[in-house]
Amino acid sequence: MQDLLYRFFHNRLAVFGSALLLVFVILALFAPLLAPFSPYYMDTNAILQAPGDVHLLGTDNLGRDILSRIIYGSRISLRVAFTSVTFATICGVLLGISAGFFGGLIDHLLSRVTDVMFSFPEILLALLIMSILGSNINNIIIAISIVYSPIFARIARGAALNIKNSLFIEASRSIGVPNRALLLKHILPNIMPPVIVQITLSLAFAILAEAALSFLGIGAEPDTPSWGIMLSDGYAWLELGWWVSVFPGIAISLAVLAFNVLGDSLRDLLDPKLKNVG
């Protein structure tokens, strides 16, 4: 473990990714302190102002400060991403381990279900789920959790299968170690590396997915300072106010980049045998 930490902090990619992520986490946690204005405050004397002294990144067509909205937007993006990926990880890993370890009907059923879910393009599945549940932030979280559970299930199942058949486990079984202990003490720790890498990748996708769903207008209330909604608003003002679209887009890209960089470096560190399959 210590060795891992040492290697982590000496890996340039890992440090860069974590630093970038830290910036966003700080922005999200301390938004009220860091943002110069309230994200809802409309300064009617500063409609669609270009980036300048008072409004560093400019204002949108209702006079709201873009910088403040981006800072508060990080709250929404990170909250949606972390919550949905946490749910997806827990559900997916539990189901996957059960399927891999116990095999039989559970395994068969899970494989079919994950096959089906993988056949749906992600955005489409999320849209479908939201058309049933309704449009709000909590449903976005639920939809994204459902969409990303299968990948965790598949990874956990694969890793569980590999380990299950190892001699070590057979030996433990033969001396009567109960299943639960096997699961917790041996299988779980061994599936951690690919799961951790996948977590960072899914976090990246979750941010993109939330932005896409908000951009499509399926999601939160129109005045929510979500990056996706800001992009959608800005699209109508591309010519008269490029800053309304450019800065939120940069924010999204940087946040997603942070997770992707972290994911890449973790993959290199934790399991160099894992192929870089994007």
Binding site: Y40, Y41, M42, N61, L62, G217, E221, P222, D223
Partner: peptide, 22 residues
Amino acid sequence: VDAAQMIKAQAAEAGITIAISA
């Protein structure tokens, strides 16, 4: 939609809470 957002902010100052559904 934009007018609705402004109305929401203005009504809030008078003590009326509005939630917008587009």
